[in-house]
Design a protein around this nucleic acid. Structure first.
Lengths: 348, 348
DNA sequence: CTGTTAGCGCTTTCAG
DNA sequence: CTGAAAGCGCTAACAG
């Protein structure tokens, strides 16, 4: 029924082994023979059986990409960049690799399940993107999984995620803490003293690091942070909206709102506007990430630019062995403060 | 070295076949036996070899999702919804399926290459999202590929993409034409007579359908469309910005700009603002898709809401056989006009 | 309900 | 440079 490598061999009058060698291009084959084989492949419209080769070779050409939310451009941009670099179609270079994008929805269990699934597929590499959940048992479970994957020959890269101790995983982390600190320093520099903070979900590294940066800036300036001025939420627009309403209720005199990320900042802007407050005349708003829409927002958003695409591309290259891992298997990708219209002097 | 099913069988004192049956849950097995097997699996930390089962069973648990641009929420939302429904982790129901998201970048060749790769992997199903390229040879090539995939047992679903004749592919198409028509009707109803149109890339079905709807509305109202008032671009913000500048140059008296989609509309807004024009007092702007940011834009965007998540979810269910395909293997998913702040009466 | 027996289609030593 | 042969680890009849 379906054409197999043996059929091609027969037609080209060579052994299956030779066909395999031609197809994989990892072994010397006479030009004339190759020619003949390629023609046969074409004539029979032959397509290699992936599972069969993966079984025989004990490795597949699948690369797993774990993301929290594929509909969020933050992850979409990284995923796209990773995929472009792993050498799939168009990316050239080596066997055509297929990116398997896995949506964890931020759930630790799903993250683990996907890792197992990827292990089952004998994935060539796995890239985990975005912040990690900090729950100790989960961290341990992930570490164990990553170790197992590495043992099985799967390369593991963390992109925008802190290193996992006791593993060989290469980590490209974002300068969340420093970026957050710069952002708050910027606001303090403008004269703000009463800053609300909308944090991400409680147990995530990204949330913690950004919050730490914020607090560091405050204490360096001798400003004591009222715990009431920090609200936790999710990394979405809705959350920013609701958290801002809550902050306004708790402390109407805030002159600035620092959001967990740009999406949250947008929600914050909506809430402020709805409350009759102008940005930045009445309240300044800053975000984080510098997603494409942030520069276009009205007012345009002051934020920290994270080189998502660059980091993803690098992660993709490391995952496919086309770039050396950084020394110590760890590199920090810094963010860059982008001062735009949404931040200004505090109101009198 | 690596644990195999045989090891588990030995430890559980059953035959490999029984272990397989327990793991696949597709065959009656005594509770006690199952129990024993499961324990052995746990103790040995066994993970099924995906390629091996795919080879033996002649089908894998991979589901391919083709998107034009994974960083674009339009595709991200659909991909996320599809993935949530195919029964991967968390989605429960049947074997854990893995979504393989393939970024074609809108390139016909890559689309074909990915389809081949998916065929190679013996994917259980393939979902193609978004508009198709209309080049005849390419359409024929895609049709041939889809036929081959279907023959090999891969279910093919088109989501937000017109049907492919002579294939068994199930198509869920969007009401692009009708939506576009409603949108332009809305503007005409407000009194607009001089409408600029920023179309998507020339050779795509989505572009054509939306443009047709627009033109239909115009001619129904007896307005003759100046070809100069239509500009083609890409489906991105930059394109909307540039196209708007160009439109303004060609015809400063336009009172409305109809954009290919919301992202383009945002670019258009930026260009208008930069030119000192107010929205909607001087120029009305409308988009298409109703992406999450559209309601939050300032001014909020009048657009056509496409139920991306719902359509994706349905596509996912059909792809995994959990929902019957619509009669005639074709269903149209209508859009819904969302009138918001960016459209208003034309200036005097 | 469970075991036995063949492969699935490819890669990879090992010879030549 | 090419062929022969031995599996890779699992599933799926087929018996029992």
């Amino acid at each position: 029924m379906t054409v197999t490598l043996a059929d091609v061999a027969a037609r080209a009058q060579v052994s299956p082994a030779t066909v395999s060698r031609v197809l994989n291009g990892n072994y010397p084959v006479a030009a004339a023979t190759r020619e003949r084989v390629l023609r046969a492949v074409d004539e029979l419209d032959y397509v290699l059986n992936g599972p069969a080769s993966a079984l025989a070779a004990a490795t597949s050409d699948l690369v797993g990409i774990l993301v929290n939310d594929i509909a969020d451009p933050f992850f979409g941009i990284m995923a796209g960049a990773i995929q472009a670099e792993i050498g799939g179609p168009g990316g050239r270079a080596g066997g055509e690799r297929l990116a398997v994008v896995c949506n964890t929805g931020g759930s630790p269990e799903r993250e683990l399940t996907y890792l197992t699934l990827l292990q089952r597929q004998r994935a060539a590499a796995v890239v985990l993107t975005g912040g990690a959940v900090e729950d100790a048992p989960h961290v341990a479970a992930v570490a164990a999984k990553l170790r197992r994957l590495t043992e099985a020959g799967t390369r593991v890269v963390l992109c925008g995620r802190p290193p996992v101790p006791d593993t060989e995983a290469v980590a490209l982390t974002f300068g969340n803490r420093d970026g957050a600190r710069e952002l708050t320093d910027h606001l303090i520099g403008l004269g703000h003293r009463r800053l609300g903070y909308i944090a991400g979900p409680q147990e995530r590294t990204t949330t913690r690091h950004r919050l730490e940066g914020h607090r560091a800036a405050l204490s360096a300036a001798g400003i004591e942070a009222d715990p009431q001025w920090t609200v936790h939420g999710r990394y979405d627009r809705r959350s920013g909206y609701e958290a801002t309403k809550e902050l306004l209720r708790r402390e109407p005199s805030l002159t600035a709102v620092v959001a967990a990320n740009d999406t949250v900042a947008l929600g914050a802007c909506a809430a402020l506007r709805e409350s009759g407050l102008r940005i930045p005349q009445d309240v300044s708003v800053v975000g984080f990430d510098d997603l494409p829409f942030s520069a276009d927002a009205v007012p345009s958003l002051t934020t920290v630019r994270l080189p998502l695409a660059e980091a993803g591309a690098r992660a993709g290259r490391i995952a496919t062995g086309r770039e050396e891992p950084p020394p110590g298997r760890l590199a920090t990708v810094p963010g860059e403060l982008m001062v735009r219209e949404s931040s200004g002097l505090p109101r009198a």
